[in-house]
């Protein structure tokens, strides 16, 4: 378990370093590798954030699918907000609803709630145990299961393939 979080944080740090320097010189590569290894050794002794991550090819495929779904939803949400802002009657019907999530690992939950915030008309306010409280700009249903179906399910299905 410890080795996995070491490898994941090493890869993330290395990618950030490569993007920052944007060069593949041997000197840069060695410096980056050494610094990333030291940092992940020092900081990842007890970190549990990558615990639920699955490291297999299917997870990678679903990550890419997820990125496309996410970008599509982001554009849709912006057009939605633009439509509401521009129409003279201001067609909103706001309210705070409660939904349930089945995801367990903290990283998966963070990705889920961030995605909810960036998609059409929803804003995560708080999370208590398995309940997420969401401010919804156009409330279609205050019922817990129905709201869960409408807001959470489309992301949760994909994220549950990437994380346990």
């Amino acid at each position: 378990m410890k080795l996995k979080s070491f490898i994941v944080s090493f890869i993330i740090l290395m990618i950030v370093w490569l993007l920052l320097t944007s060069s593949f010189d041997l000197a840069y590569l060695i410096t980056g590798a050494v610094v990333s290894a030291i940092l992940s050794l020092l900081l990842c002794k007890r970190c549990t954030i990558f615990k639920g991550m699955k490291l297999n090819p299917m997870a990678l495929v679903y990550t890419i699918i997820y990125l496309f779904v996410f970008i599509f939803e982001l554009i849709k949400s912006n057009l939605d907000v633009a439509r509401r802002v521009l129409s003279p009657s201001l067609p909103i019907n706001p309210g705070i609803v409660e939904v349930k999530t089945t995801l367990k690992s903290p990283m998966a939950r963070m990705i889920l709630t961030n995605s909810i915030t960036l998609t059409p008309g929803t804003l995560t306010i708080d999370m208590v145990d398995d309940s997420i409280f969401i401010h919804w700009i156009d409330v279609k249903s205050t019922d817990k299961t129905e709201a869960t179906e409408k807001i959470v399910k489309r992301f949760e299905n994909i994220i549950s393939k990437i994380y346990d």
Partner: peptide, 27 residues
């Protein structure tokens, strides 16, 4: 999204009222 979530939660905890058109407040 993290910053907007924190702003929303803080304003709810500080007791800022929701608008009159609000239909439900489960939180």
């Amino acid at each position: 999204p993290v910053s907007s979530h924190v702003l929303a939660r803080a304003s709810h905890k500080a007791g800022i009222k929701l608008s009159k058109r609000t239909v439900s407040d489960k939180y």
